[in-house]
Design a protein around this nucleic acid. Structure first.
Lengths: 216, 216, 216, 216
DNA sequence: AATGAATGAGCCTTCATTCAT
DNA sequence: CATGAATGAAGGCTCATTCAT
């Protein structure tokens, strides 16, 4: 009895994963707006109606896909190994953790941008939305902790972390869309550059930040 | 004959502009994905078919709209008045020129992101694409010149300018999508902050950049 | 063996009733067109497929529901208590029995109208159909008997009973669909009015009916 | 110029009428709930999308069909010729006008019942709904005026007219659904019967109505 | 008896685009 | 230049019903 139930659940999971695989492929090929339930079903070897046994709506499929992606992001950040025990190395390691993940996997970036762009109110419930937000935040927290370990207070650390994230996002966007070639630059090199400048700035000004130096 | 032809061309231009006005209004109201040729035609006082007398496709309309937007961007940058004659003031003024333009006009940002995101190959001809790129570049050049005026060599200036652009783009994206609230930050304040740090960095390290300081 | 079989049948009956309860609830909530097997199954604690162990089709469920409804109708008529022993009081009591039942329970009326309107040939077998007709007839017979008790012959009684039924049905339809408000009238008051006129007519013309009075 | 425009409008009207014809046929065949835009389009020789050039929605088609039907109803009532100049003849003529129309054209009755039954809030705007109601009312007004000409006051006339309408509707429903065979009766005969009794009642009781006679 | 995945047909509607006029 | 009817493909989604387990 128990065994049968478990096997059924396992099979259901597997088939759900199959649909998700198909969805991922279709999203990759047609972009997220261009993906259709019909196409996903066809790729998964199903009729359109069958998809709704596994997901409530198109947006729900996207939500599941994004959740997966954010899991991978966190895995990437967690497995990032700093070069030494210093807070600076920790910051660099973790920052390159999330940045490198997206730089190396443009499809995950697409998924992430869709989160950031246009998420229909239906399907992606506010509850899921918050969980996704939390997962993203989780991936960025280590950097913030490193900043605090380097002497920044909580507010400054959050500010610098946000700036760091924005910088990375901007570079990734430029790279992903090919616009960075316009400037003959490389995204990862520029991100390294930003990190170096940030560390130097902190080393010089300490917890006071550059504002205290009267530059503004 | 000649006169008639000229007049006809002028009228054609005028009517084309009318369609563009309608398109802008519809895009503002319904967003880019939600805009339809039908709606644009109705707003312009035309029937759907008539639109195709002026534009080859929906994407072409978008292209024209983006071109206009980039014109407005350049106007904004050109009319930016630095606080004093220093190169630093010039950099800040021009940088805030483009950043402020997009921060204040989210729809223009939509247009820009759409360029970056999903533009069908057809409609946006390679030729137009290059012209658009050039217009964007033009809006960013003043900052690059200011950086050179402050002693950076051409390569460093381009690098810093790209980083500056990326930073702004990242902040705008975060702000536009509301994700920046997640970090309890304000995009413009952070952009100011970045500019201040950049100026300070240049002031300290001069044309050598931080790399020369052995930080990396 | 025997006992087990009986118990099994009893349980089957019970579960069938459970499904019917669920169906009634869903019909009440979503109306007849809006009800779905899925919803009924969910409400009954079953999966969709299980429903087909108890009913051949959706229409069969509706048929069973209608049979129940007609049972309730008959119960209502049977429990109607005339004010006194006169045939007139008996007629009024029984007529208000069926009329009041439907006036007070619009959902039963829906069921009845659905029977009348759009019942697929399948599901409602001719056999069931006849049984339903008989149940309906049964609820109307008391009035007919009262009419005969008042002196009308069999033909006249059936004619008047049909007219009485039609009158009530018309009023119920008008009331149920809100169209009666158009006329600023109340269905029950009009039904009373009809009954009063009918009784008066019989009292005056006796068994001969108005036709004998040369009105036509 | 003028001529072309007129011709175009005429053609548009014609094609719209074609769609309406197709819709009428499909409604007749599949019932109103079972009719689909696809089917209507196919029957009209169009693709589904084309239908939306002529009607905003499925409900709008139904609305147009019903409007037509009510026009025919009014035509039937208006062209009803009383046998003589008496108010009684006028009442009979006009009442048989609307009753006979529906008795002879069951499809119009279907349409009418749909009005009375379930009209989606969308498509059939409240405005149209009111106009349809008004058209129905218009067909019933002559009877009410005849009742007043016979001495009934306004309230009594409206009450009797509503009762008359309800009676006819009930009979039509019973006849249309075949339920009247159950009673071995004929709808038109019963309607005549009701009219005769009504006239007699008015003749006897005059404007006071039966209530004044102490029957209740 | 019950599951629940899957079907297959269907639903209404929207849309960019074309083309005869 | 402009019309506007028409296309054809697609969109997300629902549903009664079936059937292997």
């Amino acid at each position: 009895m128990e065994a049968r139930l478990l096997r059924q659940q396992a099979m259901s999971q597997t088939r759900r994963a199959l649909v998700l695989d198909a969805a991922r492929a279709v999203f990759e090929e047609h972009g997220i707006e261009g993906a259709s339930i019909r196409e996903i079903a066809k790729r998964a070897g199903y009729t359109p109606g069958a998809i709704y046994s596994y997901f409530e709506s198109k947006e729900a499929i996207y939500g599941a896909l994004l959740a997966e992606s954010l899991d991978r992001l966190n895995t990437a950040v967690n497995s990032a190994r700093p070069q030494d025990d210093s807070a600076a190395a920790f910051l660099k390691g973790k920052a390159l953790g999330w940045f490198g993940f997206y730089a190396a996997n443009p499809r995950e970036l697409d998924l992430g941008f869709y989160l950031v762009h246009g998420l229909a109110p239906r399907g992606l419930t506010s509850d899921l939305n918050q969980r996704l937000n939390a997962r993203l935040h989780e991936a960025l927290v280590p950097c913030q902790q490193a900043l605090m370990a380097m002497g920044l207070d909580a507010a400054a650390a959050e500010r610098e972390n946000t700036a760091l994230f924005a910088h990375g996002v901007g570079l990734l966007l430029l790279q992903h869309t090919g616009r960075i070639r316009m400037f003959k630059q490389d995204a990862t090199a520029l991100f390294d550059h930003y990190l170096a400048a940030l560390l130097l700035r902190i080393a010089i000004h300490g917890k006071d930040g550059p504002d205290a130096a009267g530059c503004r």
